[in-house]
Nucleic acid binder design. Structure first.
Lengths: 343, 343
DNA sequence: GTTAGCACTCGCGACATCGGACTGCTAACA
DNA sequence: TGTTAGCAGTCCGATGTCGCGAGTGCTAAC
């Protein structure tokens, strides 16, 4: 069932050629490219075998072969050898990411911009949920008798805020004492800790006495639940329009529609959160089934053991993994380093 | 120099037909559509005149006529008669805008979504700069010894925040007294008032004694200057790809590139701020020169005499102004009404 | 097992053709 | 004088044909 050495050589030659040109690869091309010293005719025999095994496809009878997703998966798992990113590219990324101001969202956006400009693909950045970040201050502001603005200020200058409609009016005095209580209790603890604490506290309260602060806890909880900022940044949409696979109006429209639906992108990127290092998702697998032609190279970025978010590029399946994987990897690491300085 | 009655009839027939079909209009078509009882031949004479005067163009010798921007301008100024938006559309817009939560950005985004779905064009929303909104609270949070987070909480639950690098370290105590000072002085005054006040104050200070609060004023000023949230929302990009004028890859790429450059969009929409009611900008005029094929229907939305922002649609020059202008107009008014309830 | 040779297939660009939708012009008409 | 029928002319775009080139699979010889 597994491939012979020669089959692997030929398959990888076909894939590499296809990555470069996006054009079906014929036996002549392979014969010229490989150093096996085989004639096109012999190559053809092997190619016929690979086609039978599902690694190659023919668009039509007299065309060359195109690698299938199965072939790309094989290539990624077994053939591809990654080399570290060259020094000058490292330099470029480090410089570009260093120039951003102190705002985290700026840095994330900039990372996306850098990535899309280097890769010439569409970049996507999933912003942190800040579970591991420490709380600096809680504020309540009474906007109207039954409308409270909750402001949670986190380390690194991150703000989570939410407007909450109350069923009962509250007095400003109450809000002040809520805030004092929470500040005393929670400042300098991480979001995750606070969440856990609130949960257990509320469970207890319901059975014991309804603490006068349970409402305060609820307000904080609700604010954590739905951060209202955008969580996915997309950049470089135009890049993908230059790819030869996107020539028909139909395919472009589908793609742009997909990129506009941020909630779907979010769920796609979310799948990468648990990965260690760069994860490559091909279009026919997992979360990307909506876009069978595409593939995603993405990596989580983690600060002090905490995975904050995901950064990556999305493009046609025949992307240049050999150079893009190191780029994504290094960008994720650099981003993590920069963010860790902020907290 | 001005057009005869007959020329106007024929020109408007051509424009209306072109708006519907996006296809060059021939003399037969006009003859059938108008109730003038003229033969195609007579129409042709008039069309030749209109062409000489710059109102019509021929893509090629044996094609029909296409209206020039000059013709559209004439149509908008002299021919178009607007009727009020039908009751059911009003209802729809009102309902859709009513369902949003208390967050202002949500409401703005929703307004954009409604507009793009009704108009089947690309919608753009310029978010308020909040000059007329009242301050509710000022907070300073020391993130690091020389990094301060300034948080300005405004009416309606709006937050302006900025991280500011200081040259000298400050102590938390100082920040607290800063905040107290500012809260006492500025709460419940509008952003515009505060800006004006700070400006005059700082001028005075420099010459007299350097008040210990001049730094606080500077911090607030800097925060006002650069709100870091996005200020332009774009929705319905896919709609415009269905328009027959966007068939070539080139034109699509240009368009999407233009829509990605938010700072340019911002400056385009900014031009509409001073207008009273709906303003139509054709591609060859003013701010839209970058996109000569397009036209913008936009209206400011004003609350209590204060113009907050702009909402509108952008599309090919041959948009259906007769029905879209009322839609934009009504959406802007409804948005204003909803926002005014928030403050 | 490898390879040269060959017949065959198919997509694609080049080229020609044709119909249709226009126009402008002219001459006749009310 | 304005209007209209008629007509020649123009141009686009759809359709059809053709040949080339790239590539294949098979066979027979090495």
């Amino acid at each position: 069932m597994s491939l012979t050495e020669r089959e692997i050589d030929i398959l990888s030659s076909i894939i590499e050629s296809y990555i470069q040109t996006a054009v079906p690869v014929g036996s002549r091309t392979v014969a010229r490219q490989t150093s096996l010293g085989l004639s096109p005719a012999s190559i053809r025999n092997v190619m016929a075998d690979l086609t039978d095994q599902g690694y190659l496809e023919q668009p039509h009878a007299s065309a060359g072969r195109v690698p299938t997703p199965k072939a790309f998966r094989f290539y990624l798992n077994r053939i591809l050898r990654l080399s570290p990113l060259p020094e000058n590219e490292r330099h470029f990324i480090l410089n570009q990411l260093g120039v951003t101001g102190p705002e985290i969202t700026d840095t994330l956006r900039q990372a996306g911009r850098v990535l899309s400009s280097i890769s010439r693909q569409v970049s996507m950045v999933l912003a942190p949920l800040y579970a591991g970040v420490r709380l600096k201050r809680v504020e309540f502001v009474l906007i109207k008798p039954r409308l409270v603005l909750v402001v949670l200020i986190l380390a690194g200058g991150i703000i989570q805020k939410k407007l909450i409609d109350l069923e009962e009016p509250v007095r400003t005095d109450d809000l002040v004492s809520y805030a004092n209580y929470l500040n005393e209790k929670f400042v300098d603890r991480t979001v995750a800790e606070i969440k856990a604490h609130i949960l257990s506290e509320l469970k207890g309260t319901r059975e014991l006495l309804s603490s006068r602060f349970s409402q305060a806890l609820l307000l904080v909880q609700q604010t954590f639940e739905s951060g209202d900022e955008p969580r996915v940044y997309v950049d470089g949409t135009t890049n993908i329009l230059s790819q030869p696979e996107f020539t028909t109006l139909r395919s472009i429209r589908d793609l742009i529609q997909a990129l506009e639906d941020r909630s779907k992108l979010l769920s796609i990127l979310d799948k990468v959160m648990d990965s260690k290092g760069v994860l490559i998702t091909l279009g026919d697998e997992g979360a990307l089934t909506q876009m069978p032609e595409l593939s995603l190279i993405a990596s989580p970025y983690t600060v002090m053991g905490q995975t904050l978010g995901v950064i990556g590029v999305i493009g046609p399946m025949r992307m240049d993994y050999a150079s893009l994987v190191p780029v994504v990897d290094y960008t994720a690491q650099t981003l993590a380093k920069i963010l860790s300085d902020r907290f």
